[in-house]
């Protein structure tokens, strides 16, 4: 039976855990087996979650991160894609360079940026000192006002090539004669972008917005490696909070409530984006 292996695996490794996570979220399930059996606790986990300031902090950080990184990263990717779509010398070289960050695992990127952000004399602080004097430095990852922004910058650096490649393919789908016609009509560079390129990238933009936002909501690796959610919860995220509660503190039942909530948030945002963007298209 050709269908069997894939369907069985999908049922046991995706669908069953999904059902279990909903079930666990109503219980006091622990990670390691205990002598006392697991009990159903009703909505206690959810009530406790909504009463925990650190959970709200994690949720807020996750949203702030997504709201900051998505436009920044998409603008960066589009700009690079447009440069690499233009007729410039050594284009093949530039394209290869622009893809390199995507090939480095996030843990390698985090290690590199740990050096970039070093206090008091790392490369970025050397730049700060050039302008602000030699005794000044920014504690990029260690101060609660800059830590999340520092994570935004390194995340955009690490993953922009992905969106850049999709934009590059999108730019090449736009018929060349549209640009020629616009130029004949006297359209300037900005007008060609506004009236030809931007509408031409409509569908690409919808796709990019959804995948970039959802990717941003899953922020975990770089935070876990560089700040462990600190300082003072300034970089904790929903996934990091779930990991801490469910894995490190072994409260699987409680963390499952977080996981179910996270699933609902991701679905809601994807749906809202889809509906809003589709309506706009109809208008």
């Amino acid at each position: 039976m050709m269908l069997l292996p894939a369907v069985v695996l999908l049922l046991t490794i995706v669908i069953l855990p999904f059902a279990l996570s909903i079930y666990f979220s109503f219980t006091d399930q622990r990670l390691t087996p205990r002598p006392i059996p697991t009990r159903i606790v009703g909505l206690t986990n959810f009530a406790r979650m909504f009463a925990d300031p650190l959970f709200w902090k994690a949720l807020a950080n996750t949203f702030v991160f997504a709201i900051l990184v998505t436009p920044f990263q998409l603008a960066l990717s589009l700009a690079v894609a447009m440069i690499l779509n233009a007729a410039i010398p050594f284009r093949a070289f530039f394209r290869t360079v622009a893809i390199i960050p995507l090939l480095l695992p996030m843990t390698v990127v985090a290690a590199i940026w740990a050096v970039m952000y070093r206090i008091p004399n790392g490369p970025l602080n050397s730049v700060v000192q050039m302008f602000a004097g030699s005794s000044v430095y920014v504690d990029w990852l260690g101060s609660s006002s800059t830590a999340l922004l520092s994570i935004v910058l390194l995340s955009a650096w690490a993953t922009f090539p992905y969106q850049m490649l999709i934009y590059l393919a999108g730019l090449q789908e736009i018929p060349q004669d549209l640009y020629e016609a616009a130029t004949l009509d006297g359209a300037k560079r900005w007008q060609r972008f506004r009236y030809v390129t931007w509408p031409g990238l409509r569908n690409v933009n919808i796709f990019q917005l959804i995948i970039t936002t959802i990717g941003a909501l899953k922020l975990f690796t770089q935070v876990d490696m560089l700040t462990k959610g600190g300082p003072n919860g300034a970089t904790t995220t929903v996934i990091h909070y779930m990991y801490q509660q469910g894995f490190l503190s072994q409260k699987v039942g409680y963390a499952s409530a977080v996981a179910v909530f996270f699933f609902l948030v991701v679905c809601t945002i994807a749906l809202i984006q889809r509906v809003v963007l589709r309506n706009e298209e109809g208008a």
Partner: peptide
């Protein structure tokens, strides 16, 4: 029904499954 199942599981973020998966692996 199988296609619906497959499309639905596309919407589940892998991150939200890790804890029950860990228990099952145990």
């Amino acid at each position: 029904p199988l296609m619906i199942l497959i499309l639905a599981s596309l919407a589940i973020p892998a991150e939200s499954l890790v804890l029950p998966q860990l228990i099952m692996a145990g």
